[in-house]
């Protein structure tokens, strides 16, 4: 399956991914349109400052074994068998937010009482907007490595733990 791959050493912290994500998820569906309309669209990717100057574009990894799906009591949080995308069915979601706490990447946040996370831009031509906007290839839409937790995911978790 394809997902957004992260190469941390290439991230320059320009925040282009954040802007692109927010823009495609805005009512206006464009960056300038959202700015002009005074919208405050949320981004499902956030660029964090890691230790030692690392810049980390943090987003849902659409895990092979997603903790958020495991913990969800209603089955709202699901993993698409075909695309591999982890998504939340808003109709089934009761807003318990257990998924927010369960995510090891802190990639799910609360928004208006419901979880808010990356939807892998499921209906977007050209794939996820964050990867398309990344000027250095730190985020790239490509074929994922097999295994429960990939080396890339481990690297991100290490930075999050401050181990790096």
């Amino acid at each position: 399956m394809k997902k957004v791959l992260t190469e941390v050493s290439k991230c320059l912290g320009c925040h282009s991914c954040e802007n692109a994500c927010a823009a495609v998820h805005s009512e206006a569906a464009s960056f300038l349109g959202a700015v002009l309309a005074g919208e405050k669209p949320r981004s499902a990717v956030r660029v964090l400052a890691g230790t030692g100057g690392a810049k980390l574009p943090l987003r849902c990894q659409h895990c092979a074994v997603p903790a958020c799906v495991d913990v969800c009591p209603t089955g709202a949080m699901q993993k698409d068998a075909v695309t591999g995308a982890v998504f939340c069915d808003a109709e089934q979601c009761v807003g318990c937010l257990l998924c927010v706490d369960a995510c090891p990447f802190t990639a799910i946040v609360e928004d208006g009482g419901k979880p808010f996370k990356c939807d892998l831009c499921h209906d977007r031509e050209g794939g996820p907007a964050c990867a398309a906007a990344c000027p250095t290839g730190a985020l790239r839409f490509g074929e994922a490595e097999q295994g429960a937790v990939s080396a890339m995911e481990r690297e991100i978790l290490d930075i999050l733990k401050g181990a790096k």
Binding site: L12, G13, H15, V47, L48, A49, K55, P135, T136, G137
Partner: peptide, 30 residues
């Protein structure tokens, strides 16, 4: 403000004309 934009830190961001803003990728293209 953290993290601050690495293109600016490297000095490779140019907004001196209205074709831009442009930035050069230290890891390849553009």
């Amino acid at each position: 403000q953290q993290p601050q934009c690495g293109f600016g830190e490297l000095g490779v961001c140019c907004r001196n004309c209205l074709s831009g803003p442009c930035r050069v990728n230290p890891f390849g293209e553009p």
